[in-house]
Design a protein around this nucleic acid. Structure first.
Lengths: 146, 146
DNA sequence: TATGGTTAGACAACCAAGTTGACTACTTCA
DNA sequence: TGAAGTAGTCAACTTGGTTGTCTAACCATA
């Protein structure tokens, strides 16, 4: 039997491929996986470009480039930082939140398909065990898989 | 609860991070994930650069570059194609097979750690369900997650 | 058996997404 | 209040890919 690592990679890639295939049908701007990680991060907090850089695991210059792109496409906007005049907060616009909602819907569809294949209880157990493992290794949030 | 897609990505990335961390301690050449996919593919068959390109989902030129690199490091070697004078087979050297064995051992260690956290039976069920899903979506072998 | 279409691999020019390094303006702390 | 550190920008470079072109070899068919 294949190692779990390989099965995890295959399953993740299979879902991701279907996600992007469905996405291609509707989207305008060429959104890449990195953008998804940004949206998801910004959904939970206000963040500076530096915060994003740390989260994505890239340099601040790379993060700044991504932010500029997303600002241009109006998915995010810059706001003055209340206390630090050097910094700017980056936040989701309505368009950004709408996109995230749409993407979450597609992920949920793919999850439902998985549930229909392996069963709801099995899916629930699978998720529970993955969480247990993640908790054990101390991973608590999604970082990019590149 | 997070979507499965996210849990799969997190778990895969968590295992991958540990793998590369352990790898860093011993390796000489700067092997990247792409190389792992090449080794694993070559372990099962003789392949031309074109076959590799198709498997990796990159152009033949990109595949050729990777092959040249691995030949230089002596992980793989080129062999004349028996019937097609244009083509060359790429095969693993002893060094390549040794590396693969070593890597598989590390993946097995990480899997054992997972088993110790969630239980052997649970791990077995998890793998079985992932395979069932992969079978349903028609994915039968590992393609790179980039 | 000649010939036209296809394919494997090499070479070159280019591109995208990251990097490092340097700088300014502002912040923080002893 | 001065020195060290930090947010963001600009510019040069690196890397890992791309497209485009070419040659030699293959293969189908008339």
């Amino acid at each position: 039997m294949e190692p779990v690592s390989m099965l995890l990679a295959m399953a993740y890639r299979a879902m991701g491929d279907q996600f992007h295939e469905r996405l291609r049908a509707v989207e305008l701007e060429p959104l890449r996986p990195a953008h998804g990680y940004v949206f998801r991060f910004l959904a939970e907090r206000r963040a500076t470009a530096q915060d994003l850089a740390a989260h994505l695991g890239v340099t601040k210059q790379a993060a700044a480039k991504i932010v500029s792109e997303l600002v241009e496409w109006r998915y995010v906007q810059r706001e003055p930082h209340p206390t630090d005049k050097r910094a700017q907060y980056v936040t989701l616009t309505t368009k950004g939140r709408d996109y995230l909602k749409f993407a979450d819907g597609m992920w949920a569809d793919l999850e439902a398909e998985m549930a229909s294949v392996i069963g709801t209880a099995e899916l629930h157990a699978l998720k529970g065990n993955l969480k247990k493992y993640l908790d054990h290794v101390g991973v608590h949030h999604l970082r990019p898989v590149w």
